[in-house]
Design a protein around this nucleic acid. Sequence first.
DNA 1: ATAATCCCGAGTAAAAGAGTATGTTTTGGC
DNA 2: GCCAAAACATACTCTTTTACTCGGGATTAT
Lengths: 140, 140
Amino acid sequence: MRISTRGEYGLRAMLVLAENYNKGPYPLREIAKLEQISEQYLEQLFRKLRKSQLVVSYRGARGGYVLARDPADISVNQVLTALEGPLAPMQCVAENIKDEKCKHRGNCSARVVWEKLKDAINKILDETTLADLIANATEE
Amino acid sequence: MRISTRGEYGLRAMLVLAENYNKGPYPLREIAKLEQISEQYLEQLFRKLRKSQLVVSYRGARGGYVLARDPADISVNQVLTALEGPLAPMQCVAENIKDEKCKHRGNCSARVVWEKLKDAINKILDETTLADLIANATEE
DNA sequence: ATAATCCCGAGTAAAAGAGTATGTTTTGGC
DNA sequence: GCCAAAACATACTCTTTTACTCGGGATTAT
């Protein structure tokens, strides 16, 4: 039940952009150096973030990435979902297929706990924004 | 962020034992047939469950497994942890190494959300027992 | 004795994870 | 106009994990 490095690196990179919000395009190379992440790997991750419209890119010299909107309007859930897919502990509760029952015996009493887990996870991640996280950081 | 088939199958198998609590040893072969799971794979899982003292085994003909204690005293967290290891979204918050800080820049403001996630996950799974799940199932 | 059962170590094929490699395209600045 | 800095893109590779399988051995009720 781990988040992969995609989510881990991607979130850290987004926090860098959040800290530099409204200061013009920020190049991946800088993020990579700061966070000690492979630049090419970051590029892969940012393709997904861009397609999910969480960042906007500027090409060419002096180019880079900026957050698509205010850090307070980007949740951790949006970032992780873009990078990792739906955050659910089990396939059967990942999509909105509440109608389809599990094929298992009875109808799978285990599913109840997977639903609860999914809801708890998504609640936390929806409630937490990039702004929340960088606010915490500066408090010390 | 998925639970593997170890946790999935293991929990379903434990629910079968919970439903048959106090009825004597229940053989893996039966569980495997009921739940459509490979018997040899289940054996591997039950080795872990036994070592975590969640089940007791009886060898020989008419042998099988029984829950080590009442279904109301076995949490889903205990089952999943035995099979999957500590349930944490990130290595850095998995063990009790709160003292050790992340090596990342600043000190990793992302960690806050990982801690919250971990706590939420463990709370749900601690609160839910095998008895809770089978109670739900019989309600329909 | 035999069949049913748990017990155990090792092996293996497929998938996912974590990147690399090798470019092309765009654009600001000189 | 040229150049360097950047994003964009596809494909490849290596490692680890997952999800099992294989082939046996040890116990025990009947």
